[in-house]
Nucleic acid binder design. Structure first.
Length: 150
DNA sequence: GCCAACGTTGGC
DNA sequence: GCCAACGTTGGC
């Protein structure tokens, strides 16, 4: 089993939204690296940190699990959607996603500030300058270390 | 294949 | 709102 971290802006979709919905397609990802991880590397049952980005206190706020195999993101075919992709077609879909299932909220927000200041996490991808990847792998060691900060 | 222009992400 | 750091696009 592998571990991941996925970002979402809480104004768009928050951990509380997922808690309410329980299951949600992680749609609208339009970055090849992020897509490739969902398409090629994720397995049902993998655990994922839910990260709030672009907000007052960015940080890790909950845990979810991968709940489906990869499939075509329906928003790419929706002409009215901001995420419509004219170069994609149902026969040859360009963008893939997985469903995620709510597991639990963390007891508290583990903020980016805290993650950055932890000496054991200096190599963590999230902490790299200019990192903009919205989906990233988390090693089992880092997963345990971060959970221990809860 | 190079690279300038442009668009987006996301911390601050 | 600013802007650094990326990713993507498209002309050549």
């Amino acid at each position: 089993m592998a571990y991941w971290l996925m970002k979402s802006e809480p104004d768009v979709y928050s951990i509380d939204d997922l808690k309410k919905d329980r299951l949600e397609p992680w749609d609208c990802i339009r970055n090849y690296q992020a897509r490739n991880m969902m398409r090629d590397d994720m397995r049902i049952g993998d655990e994922v940190f839910f990260y709030h980005s672009n907000c007052a206190e960015p940080g890790i706020v909950g845990i979810m699990t991968v709940a489906s195999k990869p499939y075509a993101d329906p928003t790419q075919f929706d002409r009215k959607s901001k995420y419509y992709d004219p170069k994609s077609s149902p026969e040859k879909p360009r963008w893939q996603l997985v469903d995620v299932r709510f597991k639990r909220k963390l007891k508290r927000n583990i903020s980016l500030r805290e993650l950055k200041s932890h000496p054991g996490l200096s190599d963590f991808i999230l902490n790299r300058r200019g990192n903009r990847l919205s989906i990233m792998p988390v090693s089992p060691d880092y997963w345990e270390l971060i959970l221990g900060m809860e």
